[in-house]
Amino acid sequence: MLTAISQNPWLMVLVIFIINIIYVSFLTMRTIATLKGYRYIAASFSILETFVYVIGLGLVLENLDQFQNIIAYALGFGTGILVGMRIEERLALGYLVVNVITAEKDRDLPMNLRDLGYGVTHGYQYGRDGERTTLQILTPRKYERKLIETIKELDHKAFIITHEPKNINGGFWMKGVRRRRLKNYQPENVEEVLEEIYEEEVRQDETK
């Protein structure tokens, strides 16, 4: 089979391109997992990366004497980085902290978000135009977009910044992220969901 690949220049280009995508995808995911502190996941990706290197990349490196093979190698490398980052985004490892500043006074935004299942710490600070409510919200990465859309539904003028914490330890945050609630609502229906939660809490209080 290797002979057949070597004798067909266009097949060789395709093989180089595909192998490099696979190799660099694993390399990218291993690097990201290492930076995030997921040591066992990073080790797993490194095993897969080495396997692809030993089996396939040797063939690639031995056939870079042709210009088209060099182009395929470069394109495969760049594509592999994009694919690896996309896969990592889909895996959505870890948590994000979303910082929110709101001037909304008619709505209890921190409690609304807690009712939806997010871990929220809030306080009050002063800006140029007076008092503002500031929130730090913990969310699994895969719910980042959902959280931002939810905040915009509740307060379209809110100022939002996200960042990824290196370490999280203790406190209410880890217990406060209720994944089932986060999963079972849509941002465009957040008003109805909050009303249902409120009614359920009222019924529970009445039965006590």
Results as ranks from 00 to 15, higher is better:
M1S: 02
M1G: 04
M1I: 02
L2G: 00
L2Y: 02
T3V: 02
S6K: 02
N8F: 01
N8S: 01
N8A: 00
L11G: 08
V13K: 00
V15I: 09
I16P: 00
I16A: 00
I19K: 01
I19M: 06
N20E: 14
V24L: 14
S25L: 12
S25N: 10
T28G: 11
T34A: 14
T34L: 11
T34D: 12
L35P: 01
L35D: 12
L35K: 11
K36W: 06
G37K: 03
Y38T: 07
I41D: 05
I41F: 12
F45D: 02
I47E: 00
I47H: 06
L48F: 15
L48S: 11
L48Y: 12
F51Y: 08
F51S: 05
Y53W: 15
I55E: 04
G56N: 07
L57V: 09
G58H: 05
V60K: 00
L61T: 07
L64P: 01
F67E: 09
Q68M: 11
I70F: 06
I70H: 03
I70P: 04
A72N: 08
Y73S: 05
G78Q: 14
I81R: 07
L82Y: 15
I87L: 15
E88I: 08
E88N: 14
E88L: 09
R90P: 00
R90T: 12
A92K: 10
Y95S: 08
V98W: 03
V100K: 09
V100H: 10
T102G: 09
E104I: 15
R107C: 04
D108L: 15
D108K: 14
P110D: 07
P110C: 11
M111Y: 11
N112Q: 10
D115F: 05
D115N: 13
G117S: 08
G117M: 01
Y124K: 10
Y126P: 03
Y126E: 08
G127H: 00
G127T: 01
D129K: 07
D129S: 09
R132I: 09
T133K: 04
T133N: 07
L135Y: 00
L138P: 00
P140C: 01
K142N: 06
E144I: 01
E144W: 00
E144N: 04
K146R: 03
K146Q: 13
L147E: 00
I151Q: 04
I151H: 02
E153K: 13
E153C: 13
L154G: 03
D155A: 08
I160E: 06
I161P: 03
T162N: 11
N169M: 13
N169T: 12
G170H: 06
G170C: 06
G170P: 06
G171Y: 12
W173Y: 10
M174C: 08
M174S: 13
G176N: 14
R178T: 05
R178H: 14
R179P: 04
L182G: 07
N184F: 09
Y185P: 04
Y185M: 10
E188C: 07
E188G: 02
E188L: 09
V190E: 01
E196C: 01
Y198P: 00
R203D: 12
Q204L: 13
T207F: 14
T207Q: 15
K208P: 02
